[in-house]
Design a protein around this nucleic acid. Structure first.
Lengths: 148, 148
DNA sequence: TTAGAACAATTCTATATAGAATAATTAGAG
DNA sequence: CTCTAATTATTCTATATAGAATTGTTCTAA
């Protein structure tokens, strides 16, 4: 039985990154795809640790560290050490990052419309349900059989 | 209306790349995710141009060029100039690359089983149908509004 | 026929991503 | 208590990816 889901996922990832980045630039927003994903989770809930952001974005922890470096440089995020557990770094949004949310989400919405062109509401829900199932399967696998 | 498909796609891409690479290494196969995608299309039809590989993998053309460099180095691929159109480079599989197909596809199959854990045949077909629709939408968009 | 447009691939440069190793802190077993 | 294991984040190194610019080839309109 040959399946192609993984191949399609990668194709879509590549296409959407290139298109979304272009839409953002056209709208005067200079936020990369990786940076956007971190903002996405922090806009939902601010003040997360690096590990928590790693878990929620599915980026490796060291990748999160490095992307955050760039975002601190650009004035989007701030690092503080958690006094209750000094191993942890708490990542927080700056006012600047908060102020970009509306504009960024407008472009996201525009991207979503393109992405789901021709989909009914029902199909969209069904599709995202499948995605969540696969993501959870893979995340659980990685957690139980750590890669490093 | 907020959609999350793009975010989920990226999460799955990251997870599957890390897991698949680990499975390959465990099976003694040293082929990266990007290299695997190029082999995937060449195993279906050998002797393609760089542009055609770019189109079929949804990787940017310059990315394909560079990944092919590495694969030529490793003895997986060969470059020849198309005498009928000397602008084109024809990419061909070596015997070595052909010989790896069976083993690689066994690991792919293993990955597919994990990926679609808990899916019925019907759900799998439906899901891959959705993926193809989205991929085609995005690919068409990029073709009509070139990014560069 | 030829100059400029179009096409195909590559190179140059910069960012994204992750594995392995390291540093710092906390938890836990004896 | 204390020494080792576990946790958390970061740095180091290497590959992946793509935009912009470049090179070489073909096509096309005057």
């Amino acid at each position: 039985m040959e399946t192609k889901g993984g191949f399609y996922i990668t194709q879509i990832k590549q296409l959407q990154d290139r298109i979304f980045e272009k839409l953002l630039i056209e709208n005067g927003i200079e936020i990369s795809s990786g940076q956007g994903r971190i903002l996405f989770v922090l806009w939902k809930k601010d003040h997360l640790t690096v590990s928590e952001i790693s878990r929620q974005t599915s980026l490796a922890k060291n990748t999160v560290s490095i992307v955050i470096d760039g975002m601190v440089q650009k004035g989007l995020l701030e690092r503080t050490i958690n006094p209750e557990n000094r191993r942890q770094t708490i990542i927080s949004l700056t006012e600047y990052a908060k102020s970009m949310r509306i504009k960024y989400e407008a472009v996201s919405e525009q991207m979503g419309v393109l992405f789901y062109q021709g989909f009914s509401e029902k199909e969209l829900k069904e599709f995202e349900g499948y995605l969540v199932r696969i993501r959870d399967t893979l995340a659980e696998y990685e957690e139980n059989f750590p890669l490093h």
